[in-house]
Each structure stands twice: as C-alpha cells, then as structure tokens.
Design a protein around this nucleic acid. Sequence first.
DNA 1: CTGAAAGCGCTTACAG
DNA 2: CTGAAAGCGCTTACAG
Lengths: 342, 342
Amino acid sequence: MKRVTMVDVAKSAGVSKSTVSQYLNKRFDYMGEETKLRIEQAIEKLGYQPNIVARSLKQKRTSTIGVIVANILHSFSTQVIRAIEDTCRDNDFHVIVCNADDDPVTEEKYIQMLLAKQVDGMIIFPTGGNLNLYHSMVQRNYSVVFVDRIIEGVNIDVFLLDNENASYLAVKHLAEHGHSRIGIVTPSLERKITPRIERINGFKLALNKFGLPLETGYIKSMDVDKLHVGLKEMFSLPVPPTALIASNDLSLYEVVKFAKESGIQIPSQLAVVGIDNVPFATVFEPSLSVFAQPAFEMGNKAAELLLKRIEHSDLVIEPQIHRFQPTLLAGKMPKNDNMLFF
Amino acid sequence: MKRVTMVDVAKSAGVSKSTVSQYLNKRFDYMGEETKLRIEQAIEKLGYQPNIVARSLKQKRTSTIGVIVANILHSFSTQVIRAIEDTCRDNDFHVIVCNADDDPVTEEKYIQMLLAKQVDGMIIFPTGGNLNLYHSMVQRNYSVVFVDRIIEGVNIDVFLLDNENASYLAVKHLAEHGHSRIGIVTPSLERKITPRIERINGFKLALNKFGLPLETGYIKSMDVDKLHVGLKEMFSLPVPPTALIASNDLSLYEVVKFAKESGIQIPSQLAVVGIDNVPFATVFEPSLSVFAQPAFEMGNKAAELLLKRIEHSDLVIEPQIHRFQPTLLAGKMPKNDNMLFF
DNA sequence: CTGAAAGCGCTTACAG
DNA sequence: CTGAAAGCGCTTACAG
C-alpha cells in the first residue's frame, strides 16, 4: 500500500505541487476556479491525505501539545485532561497524554521526549523535581503552563484551587453543623506538594478563625497506604474528633474504609467532608459532602492560555497564579448533638 | 532561541552528520572510540536533542499510536488508557488520546487526523458508525485494534469482557443470596453497542438457567438521563423486584440515586449488583457488589498486540475476539428473606 | 495566476 | 572507519 503524496495529486491534476500546496492551505487569492476544481477532483480520486509530519518539519510547529499529569487515575486529572482535549480540538490541536506517576525521573524523560517530538507547548502537573528543566524551558521562552502545583521560584503560570479557602469552607461547613472537634487527614507532606500544604494551612487558619481548638492528635499526614494506622491512633484518643476533613480523594477513601471497618457510622457518629473530585460521592450513603475543584473550567482555562502563548510567542504575558473556587456538593449531614455531652 | 541541529553537532565534533546519525542510532560497529567521545562531548556541550519529526519523516514511522475512546470520563476507559500508556512507555512509544464522545462524526475526524499525523497504529473503542473507514484501514493493512465493542463484519481484533458471563455471574450471585425477582437496567440499546446487548442477553439466559421468571417490567433500557422514569415504573409495579443489576457505571449511579430519593434501602430492601468499574463502590454503604472488568490487563494486552502488529506488519496474525473474565468486588449483602412472603 | 528551487532535520545505502 | 549525496513530503519566497 503505497501512500499517495502531493506529487501524485499534482501529476493527476496537471499542476505543480506548489499549487496543490496553495490549494490545501486555502491560499486561493489568485487561483483559477478551474485549477481549484481539478485539484479537488484529483484529491478525491486518489484519496490523498496530507502528511502532517512533513508539514510540521517544514513549518517548525506540530499543532500538538503535551500534557503530563501526576496520575491519570485521579478523577481530577481525568476531568482536566478531558477539558484540555476539548479546547484543543476546537483549535485543531492534538494532545499527547503522559503519566509521570509523581516521579521526577519519569517526568524528565517525558519532557525530553515531548521536546524531541517538537510539541508546541506543555501543560504539566509538576512533580517539582526538575527545577533545572523548568528553568531552561522558561529561559528558552518555551510555552508551558502548570496545573495544581506551584513551584517556588519558577516563573510559569499555575492553575489551581484556592486550597486555603477550600479548607476554610470545609471547616465552616462542619462548624455550622455543630462540630468543634475537627480533624484532617492528608497524604504525606514530605514532598511539599502545594495543595496538601495549603489545605492543611488553611485548616489551621480556619480553626483559629472559628475559635476552635487545634488538636495535634487530630491531624494525620502520611502515605495514603499507612493512613489507616494514623486513623486508628486518632480514634483511640480519649476524646476523638466528631468530624474529619479528607484532603483529597484517596484519603477520603481511606477514611470511609476505616469507618466502615471500625463500625463508625457516617454521618451520625462522624461527619466527613472531602476536598477533591469524587464522582458518585453524593449519591452514596454515607452522604459525604465534597468540595470539588472546577476541573473542567481549570482545564479549559489552562489550555486556552497555553494556546494563546503558542500563537503569540512574541507577546509577553507575565505568568500568574490563577486561583479557582471550590464548589460544595453536599450530601445530607445531621446537626451534631454530641458536643452537648462535653 | 535557535534550535541546535545535527550539523551543529557535526561541525563541533569535526565529523560529518552521517557519523553523528550513526552515533545516535548506536551503530557503533566500526566507529572509533575517539570519534564517539568527540560526538558525545559535542552533544553535551550544545545541549543537542534530535528532532523526532525529521526522523519520523525519513523513517516513515512515528513511534506514536492513537487511542480513541468513547468517553474518557468512564473509569474503565481511564484505566485502559493508563495501561496502554504504561505498555507504550516500556516500548518507547507515545500515545495521543482522543475522545470521540460516542459520536461517529467526531470519531471520523479523529481517525483522519491521526492518519494524517502518521501514527503507527490505533486502539479504538469504536462507535460503529464508520464502517467504510474501518474497512479501508483493514484493507490497507493498517494496524488497528478495537476495545469493548465488536463491529460485525469488520475483521479487527477486539478486546472485551465476557459480558454474557458477567451477567450470568451477577444473576448467580443474586440467586445465591435468595433473590428470584431480579431486574436489570441498561443504557439505550438502540445503537447496538456490544456490551449492552450481550449483558442483557446474558441476563435473560441466566434467568432461564436458574429457572427464574423473566418479567418484562423488570427490564429497562433507555438513555441514562431518563432511567429514573423507568425505575419509577418498575417500582410502581404491584410486585417490584428485590434485586437489580446495573449494566454499567452510569446506570448504577442512577439506581443508587433513585433508591436514595425513593427511600429504598440498599441492600436490605433492594440488592444491587453492578457490572463495570466503579472506584469506591465497595467501601461505601450501601455495599454494592460489582463485577469489574480487568481494565489494566485488557489495556496491556491490546497495546501489546498492536505494537506487535506494528513491528511485524509483514506477519499475518488472524484477528480474534479476546475475551476477559470479570472479577467480583463484593460488598456485604444479606440473604433475602422477602421471598418467603410470596 | 502558476511553477522551479531551496530547505526543514534527519537516515541510509553506497563509495572509498 | 567515515563522508557525500539523495531523499522523506511538505511549504514558501521568488520569478515570470
């Protein structure tokens, strides 16, 4: 199966390949109607399809962007990818999706491969482990945009949740339902991942604002697969919390699993609020309240800005931090009466 | 920022670009140690990165595959993509992900774009609406593999669940828990989508096998956003079912939502079994039993076969239907005593 | 209004 | 052991 190329079309239409190229690029300014028709028919007859690889080589642009997510299995990532995909499609761009698995080495490998593939820009959920690479991209004026995580000292746009406010709203939600003993669980803070840090800070600030006590025993940050140990400790305390904030989907999962295994009823014995995108959360019992990230909006906006930077690489747009507000998806949660007992 | 090319490296190393190319492709057969070193240093010094677009044009292969899913928001799709991604990475292939949104027009557009981009092969969750295109790909001996759906008369490998058996196992599971009045809900069957058809057929066969009655009122197939109407009808019957099978994640969602809104307790008043991949399902109350598809295995196998077809396009491998068995993720489900009352 | 020519950055026989 | 040359399939000034 020999591929049909432009010369075949040119021959068949009795014109030069320059003219075919003009036709394909819709530079009709001076093209005769009859020429147009002949080319059109030749293309039709031969089933010609332009070779974008050749075009890309010549034009030095591929109309493709790369997306490197930390983990595609998070709903949030999936939704962001979906939104990016949609925006790119509307602009005739393609998307290469890569999974860094939160590993800097994998991330680096992917960035290098994407650069070698000459993608016109990238949207990255950065691991934070490749500072030199990030810097060199900035320096070369390469189009990049970050999502979800701020990397200190790297001058690149970031699209992320107003995490502190999400925590504030979560605490407020619980406080309004009569809870004063509120705990939080988050994945490990060791790697200084922005949303985790900001959510726990926001949590502390909010407790303070509401005049609620900060019990160190009510705060657990550790690798998700060890979270059940921390939860066990927390609920072995003489006075355990009556409410818990799960700082992302995986910790929420651990909380619900732990409660189920320990016979703790949600929400009657323990109120739970999650921060993250958890499909299904609101229809299940226990009704969970979830502050979701506006993933689609974030993805759209990130893609739009990236495409704008690509189109107008001359234009200087000072990178910013773009914050988004969470939305409450509330399950039903009864007022807490326990506090009457203490 | 001028990009560094092979000639720059060649000049800097004092060799010809052919030699640099040999070096990059690790054809060291006859290369002098000293030449090797000089090239290595030149690459290092200039920060040279090969341009894969140029290489692809020359080699007529891009080391990239396209994946077109029906809808990336299904967990099953996400998991399959993830598995494909992993397999491709191990083989230095890249993945372009596209969302057809179950729309044949979008699907066609994507297939054309991917072909124009010269991807070496595709993995498609086919809409079924582009028979001519599918056929032309087969005819051109282009490497394609389908997932999830069989398209009659198109000779392409398909990787999918043993859907009939999944239904059989679901019925069995319910029958063993004492249920005899079992219903099923599925998305619309209008478009003859394989898993839906097979799951409902399997359901009917299984009922028969277990000597259970087939109540037409217990079967609802309609667009997911109208399923609550069907459910209302079903539960207004004089004798409603005691158990329900949801044939995919979205219908499961509708069932749980409906039960919650109608005050029907799961699982005490209604046992529910889902067929599909629903993260979180088993830790929530109501405990749902779910027969999940081995998405990772399916994705891996599909990718492996596609890559094999790409590498050995001369080799004739007769396309097959590859079936996979579901896995039960069981929540707790009490024995049904209601049947004693009828 | 259309064509000849150069060139994008590689790879690959082939010659020496 | 290494280099000169042709070519992958396009686009784009430029000439006419």
